[in-house]
Design a protein around this nucleic acid. Structure first.
Length: 489
RNA sequence: GGUCGGUUGGCCGAGUGGCUAGGCAGCGGUCUGCAAAACCGCGUACGGCGGUUCGAAUCCGCCACCGACCUCCA
């Protein structure tokens, strides 16, 4: 039941059974961030999507090498191959060495990915550390006649490529259409066609980030880094290439073209793309100025946020939608996610406390199979979560003495829940109180004991005062069959 | 304009040609000294118009609206 993972391959637009090139090894490459700004909600989506994939593949006993790059050079700010390098621009504006910018935002990115419980990839290579590999690919493509030099820069000849291979197989673009739809921008005279893309760019005198090459002192084109680094660490053919849908064209299309010339074939067998996060139905994007950083989410410091949202709430919110659907942000939706997550985590905690019975009235095996089926079906996390809630309902019913479960089944359910909730979905209980929990436990037990005594004496005034005052302090008292329990809001 | 995708009950969000998605919110009930929590039950939704079919939210066509990509963005 664990086998038969199906994933939607953008290349074929169909769900395909996943078969690795060299089992048990799996090569996974995901386009990482360009580190020139604080990580925002948009960064969380691919990170969490492919984190789930990474975790699941490992669970299936694949030996996964997960490469997620850090783009620290070559990503231009503006129009096609003419703008300022993003890192360089930020460095200029803040009067920093470009690598200071890179260092700072890389650390910020790591910090917030950790908070979201996103596992580190196996390798996190930087574009600037692979200039030699990138230049080798430039040479190779140039030698084979699919690129041309122009004023110290080297451009990929898309028209020539299209004559022998098909340009647009991933995105469904037709080159003829691009003639009319690609913008003709100022200063593109270096290129034969506007849709040609840079493999190597000659640096202007003011450009700080530059490396020597036989073409010019310059820097690599943006699309090249992924081709160079994926080939270096995963080989020229690897299993899965992932990224956001917005990278589908032109970035991934260009990668395929480069790779096809340099290596004789496209880089990956399966292409996976996560959809966008929207705010009020519109894509969240830097250029639109409507993005909310993760820090703002976690602290609530953004005018659109009604309150702070915890990392696990964000993670759960994202996992509650399928990765290929857009997910629309709103405070209301986040509140629903927060409460839902709480219910799930309380169910997990309740599971450790319930008492076994003689019979089982919840089919744990069938539940487990359904959970696997959900993930096997193109990582359908919302369906998985729906099944998890069915289990929570069963757990609560046992706690309420409505149904019963045998000790064996409780144990099996417990390991299944931990597997799917914590290990695979990566949802962990959040520490609500950081200090003095042992002492607090003792104090609370005392307080609740006194309240119980008051209740026994029908001294409702005292018992209610304890409850209400605790509530005002942020501690919720819950009365149950086995006595009262408490938790911090 | 071109290409692609979407339109599901108050909100979010799955989905298969006929069988309850799930969460949040709401309503009724059980439990409770009261409340909270928990449990039980309820709403009978699928953009519009046609078509295929015994039967369609699910297949086809047209229309409307929304979005993404076509320029950097996860």
């Amino acid at each position: 039941m664990k086998s038969e993972l199906k994933i939607f391959n953008t290349l074929t637009r169909e769900k395909e059974t996943f078969v690795p090139v060299n089992p048990p090894h799996v090569g996974l490459y995901v386009c990482g961030p360009t580190v020139y700004g604080d990580p925002h909600l948009g960064h969380a989506r691919p990170a969490i999507t492919f984190d789930l994939l990474f975790r699941y593949l490992q669970h299936l006993h694949y030996k996964v090498r997960y490469v997620r790059n850090i783009t620290d050079v070559g990503h231009l700010e503006n129009d096609a191959d003419e703008g300022e390098d993003k890192i360089a621009q930020k460095a200029r504006l803040e009067q920093l060495e470009p690598m200071e910018v890179v260092q700072y935002y890389t650390e910020r990115y790591h910090k917030y990915m950790d908070a979201l419980n996103v596992k580190s990839p196996s390798i996190e290579p930087r574009a600037s550390g692979h200039i030699i590999e990138q230049l080798a690919i430039v040479d190779s493509i140039l030698q084979k006649g699919f690129a041309y030099e122009s004023n110290g820069s080297v451009y990929f000849d898309v028209e020539r490529y299209n004559r022998e291979h098909k340009y647009g197989i991933l995105s469904g673009r037709v080159l003829e259409d691009l003639y009319s739809t690609t913008r003709n921008l100022e200063g593109q005279s270096e290129k034969k066609n506007s849709f040609d893309f840079a493999l190597w760019k000659k640096a202007t005198p003011s450009h700080i980030m530059r490396w020597p090459s036989k073409y010019s002192d310059g820097f690599p084109g943006w699309h090249l880094e992924c081709t160079a680094m994926s080939a270096r660490y995963l080989g020229e053919t690897f299993d899965i290439h992932g990224g956001g849908m917005d990278l589908l064209f032109p970035h991934h299309e260009c990668e395929i073209a480069q790779s096809t010339i340099a290596h004789g074939h496209g880089p990956a067998r399966y292409w996976m793309h996560n959809n966008m996060i929207t705010i009020n139905g519109q894509k969240m994007g830097k250029s639109l100025g409507n993005f909310i950083t993760l820090e703002q989410f976690f602290t609530g410091s953004h005018k659109m946020l009604e309150k702070a949202w915890s990392p696990m709430t964000i993670r759960f919110f994202i996992l509650q939608a399928h990765y290929r659907s857009t997910v629309d942000f709103s405070n209301e939706a986040l509140l629903a996610a927060e409460k839902g997550l709480q219910r799930l985590m309380e169910g997990m905690a309740q599971l450790e406390k319930i008492k076994p019975g003689n019979v089982s009235e919840f089919d744990v095996e069938s539940f487990k199979s359904k959970c696997y089926e959900a993930l096997n079906d193109d990582l359908n996390s919302p369906i998985l979560i729906a099944h998890l809630f069915d289990a929570v309902k069963a757990i609560n019913s046992v706690a309420a003495d409505k149904i019963s479960l045998t000790a064996d089944d409780i144990s099996a359910l417990s390991s299944t829940m931990h597997l799917f909730v914590e290990e695979l979905l990566g949802l962990t209980p959040e520490l609500k109180s950081e200090t003095g929990s042992e002492m607090l436990d003792g104090v609370m037990n005392l307080v609740l004991k006194i309240r119980q005594q008051a209740k026994s004496n029908k001294d409702w005034a005292t018992s209610d005062q304890i409850r209400d005052d605790l509530n005002a302090l942020g501690i919720i008292v819950k009365d149950g069959k086995e006595g009262a329990s408490w938790e911090i809001k």
